[in-house]
Each structure stands twice: as structure tokens, then as C-alpha cells.
């Protein structure tokens, strides 16, 4: 896609995409928070997540009353937000498909363009233009969508190791599925850190995702600043 530097950069997000984005954001935060509490009950690695960053109520109170450190609550959150997550991903995916956002803005992306933009970004020479995704962003967004898809598949394998035993077998068994579920969670958290950092650097992208439209001054002017 060519970019006319004399025109102002404009980022627009249709209402449905914005709604899907924020529902997705909310459901992912709930999934991570409750998932960390569930993880703490039977950790895979020799560490726990600090309870402050988990969802499931005050574990000390819950253990006195129920002999359960808020895991029941965390599981209730996890399996409720699972539907919100599925719904918002479906809404987002269908919308990107129908509007051509997927084909036009997210695809295609090849290794060469990714490498070029990645090197530019790493050396702080990459223009971050509103309304146009560079190859690194494309890989990032497609990557996190793939990670969410993997979370679904590995999550189903953990939830239903008998009814969906083929999935569980594919991950090398129940504990293998738990490990995969954990690793893709790490990938998604990694994405969130970079995503939120970049939004903080270019706050207008946040404006666009909230009100639907944001523009910057013509590019050659902003570049001269």
C-alpha cells in the first residue's frame, strides 16, 4: 500500500470492531486473572502468581469459610469469560472478514517485509503511521490471534480430556495441554505488554479505538518535528 506523505494519517475503527476489541480486552483480562489463580493451586513451575494480580476474591477469607483459596470463584470467572472471549473473537473475526480489514490491512505479510520493518523498528527508524499497519504490527496482530486460537484448543483439551480426548492426545496428554495453555498465556501477556507500551507511545491509536477516528498532522510535518 502506498502512503502519500502529504496527506494526514487517519485511523478509523468501525463501531463493531471497537466493541469487539474492548470485549476481547475485558475477557482476556478476566481469563488471565482467573487463570493465574487456578494455576496457583497446582503450579507447573516453581513459582506462584501474586494473589493481588489474580481474580477470585480474597483467598485468606475463602479458605476460612470454604477451605478453598478462591479457586471456585476463579473457575466460575474463567468458564463464564470463556463465552465472552469466544463471542468477541467470533464478532471480531467475522467483522474483519466481511469488511476486508483482514485481507486489506492484516494480510499479506511475508518474512522479507517483516525483517525489513523489524530492523527499522529495532533501530527506531520505523514510521508509525496511523491507519496503516507495518509488517511487524501485522505479524503481532496475526500472532496474538493465533495464540488465542491455541488457547481455545488447549483449553478445550484441559476442560474435556475425555470428551475431546483427541485434542488432549495431540498435546501429549493432560499435563502437556496444561503446559501449552500456560506457554500461549505467556505469549499473550507478552503481546499485551508491547501493545500497551506502543499505545502509550502513540496515544492517538487509543483515541481511535475509543471514539472511532483519530488523525495526525500531515506526515511530512510531523516527521520534521
Amino acid at each position: 500500500m502506498s502512503h502519500d506523505a502529504s496527506l494526514p494519517d487517519v485511523q478509523t475503527h468501525p463501531a463493531i470492531r471497537r466493541v469487539a476489541h474492548w470485549l476481547l480486552a475485558l475477557s482476556i483480562l478476566i481469563m488471565i486473572g482467573s487463570g493465574w489463580r487456578i494455576y496457583n493451586t497446582s503450579p507447573i513451575f516453581p513459582f506462584n502468581f501474586p494473589e493481588t494480580f489474580t481474580l477470585g476474591g480474597d483467598g485468606a477469607i475463602a479458605i476460612v469459610h470454604h477451605n478453598d483459596g478462591g479457586v471456585a470463584n476463579a473457575i466460575a470467572w474463567h468458564f463464564a469469560a470463556m463465552w465472552l472471549l469466544a463471542g468477541s473473537v467470533l464478532l471480531y473475526f467475522l467483522h474483519t472478514l466481511v469488511t476486508g480489514h483482514l485481507r486489506r490491512d492484516l494480510l499479506p505479510v511475508g518474512p522479507r517485509s517483516f525483517l525489513r520493518d523489524f530492523i527499522a523498528a529495532a533501530t527506531f527508524r520505523l514510521d508509525h503511521r496511523l491507519g496503516e499497519y507495518n509488517a511487524v504490527q501485522k505479524v503481532f496482530y496475526l500472532g496474538v490471534l493465533s495464540a488465542i486460537a491455541m488457547m481455545f484448543v488447549s483449553g478445550l483439551a484441559i476442560w474435556k480430556p475425555v470428551q475431546f480426548q483427541f485434542l488432549t492426545w495431540m498435546f501429549g496428554g493432560f499435563q502437556g495441554a496444561r503446559l501449552v495453555h500456560f506457554l500461549f498465556m505467556v505469549a499473550i501477556v507478552g503481546f499485551l505488554v508491547v501493545h500497551v507500551t506502543l499505545v502509550a507511545i502513540v496515544p492517538k491509536t487509543l483515541v481511535a479505538m475509543v471514539v472511532g477516528r483519530a488523525s495526525s498532522a500531515p506526515h511530512h510535518i510531523s516527521a520534521a518535528e
Binding site: 483480562l29 478476566i30 486473572g33 494473589e51 493481588t52 494480580f53 489474580t54 481474580l55 477470585g56 476474591g57 480474597d58 477469607i61 475463602a62 469459610h65 470454604h66 478462591g70 470463584n73 470467572w77
Partner: peptide, 18 residues
């Protein structure tokens, strides 16, 4: 009943962290 009462108390704490 007890669970409902308890959850009312614990939820707000969880929600704060969220």
C-alpha cells in the same frame, strides 16, 4: 447462603485487582 454472602465480600476484592 453462606457462599453468596462470602462471594459478595470476596468479589469486590477480586474486582479491585482486576
Amino acid at each position: 447462603i453462606e457462599r453468596r454472602v462470602l462471594m459478595r465480600g470476596t468479589l469486590s476484592l477480586g474486582a479491585v485487582s482486576l
